[in-house]
């Protein structure tokens, strides 16, 4: 593994008595795509803010590109591209000016920023919108502009806080494609998400985080292998029959989870498990055999769903 660009040891952030981040340790390698996966309020954004040198830690050690964020805020931030959870584009400026002015904040010269802004508008598929007002852009376009803006300083590390939350499926796929291209070019990506599919698409490695602590760490595939079975059968019997069916199902799978609306049966062979369920005389209203996902990992680790 190449030398880490970010390393945290027992990193802690407390607001009065409440520990938003409670002693987490991790390392992120250069060129890696690393995710923080967890529900709202897990401490993902706070961790991102500490890495981004806009929040000071309460305890523990943190090093970003070899520097301490508490001492070297401007130096660290000059190497980061930050995509915050909520767009904070400059609504008083046109689309292209947003990029130029942001580059000026990094002290970059106009001679460099002009061509760079055009290049990034093309990358973000916003060339025709160069002279548009920010408020006239769609949600997906604003998000892409925010990502283009974050790239104006050729950052070594991209920090993306829930990059696709609130976007429609098509806009998400366009965005994922753009982020994947960055990854291919060797940019280190650090992202938070509560979407499983997003983490599986984009992350080489991730930590599952809940209530400020790390629950598990690994690649999406290895986490699924470690904490779940290969396949899952989702069965719906109707809310009043779920409990009765659950007791019968326990015998034919490694593990089952009873959710309010459905039962998840964990098995390496989903079709066989479904077959057996039918043989037991259980006739679910609907059934679905699918591959295990990080959602199942999270459920296993915390006993809760990610999106409640």
């Amino acid at each position: 593994m190449p030398a880490p660009v970010i390393s945290a040891t027992e990193l802690t952030k407390k607001y009065k008595d409440f520990a938003a981040v409670d002693g987490i340790s991790f390392e992120i390698a250069s060129g890696e795509s690393f995710g923080f996966l967890g529900p709202n309020g897990a401490g993902k954004s706070t961790t991102m803010r500490m890495i981004g040198a806009v929040s000071t830690r309460t305890a523990g050690d943190l090093s970003v590109i070899g520097l301490d964020p508490n001492q070297y805020g401007p130096e660290i931030r000059s190497q980061l591209g930050v995509v915050p959870q909520e767009d904070n584009l400059d609504t008083e400026l046109k689309v292209r000016d947003n990029l130029i002015v942001y580059g000026r904040y990094f002290g970059l010269p106009h001679s460099y920023l002009g061509p760079k802004a055009d290049e990034l508008l093309e990358f973000a598929q916003l060339t025709e919108k160069a002279k548009a007002r920010v408020d006239d852009l769609s949600g997906g376009m604003k998000r892409r502009l925010t990502i283009a803006r974050a790239l104006i300083n050729n950052p070594r590390i991209m920090m993306l806080d829930e990059p696709t939350t609130g976007l429609d499926p098509q806009a998400r796929h366009i965005l994922w494609d753009r982020l994947f291209r960055l990854k291919e070019r060797g940019t280190t990506l650090v992202l938070t998400t509560h979407y499983m599919d997003e983490a599986e698409q984009l992350c080489d490695r991730l930590v599952v985080i809940d209530k400020g602590t790390i629950m598990a760490e690994g690649s999406p595939a290895s986490l699924i292998k470690q904490y779940s079975t290969r396949e899952v059968v989702e069965l719906r019997f109707g809310s009043d029959r779920n409990a009765a069916a659950a007791t019968k199902l326990e015998s034919l799978a490694e593990r089952i989870e009873v959710l309010p609306d459905r039962i998840l049966v964990y098995s390496d062979n989903g079709d066989a498990a479904l077959q057996k369920a039918h043989e037991l005389g259980l006739n679910p209203l609907t059934s679905l055999v699918r591959r295990s996902s990080l959602e199942d990992v999270f459920l296993r680790l915390t006993g809760r769903s990610l999106i409640e």
Partner: peptide, 22 residues
Amino acid sequence: MTTTTDAPPVPHVNRPFLLPSL
């Protein structure tokens, strides 16, 4: 995506004597 050639690759921050980090 094309690459710009004569561009400075990364911004440079002068660490001032007064108020560094601010």
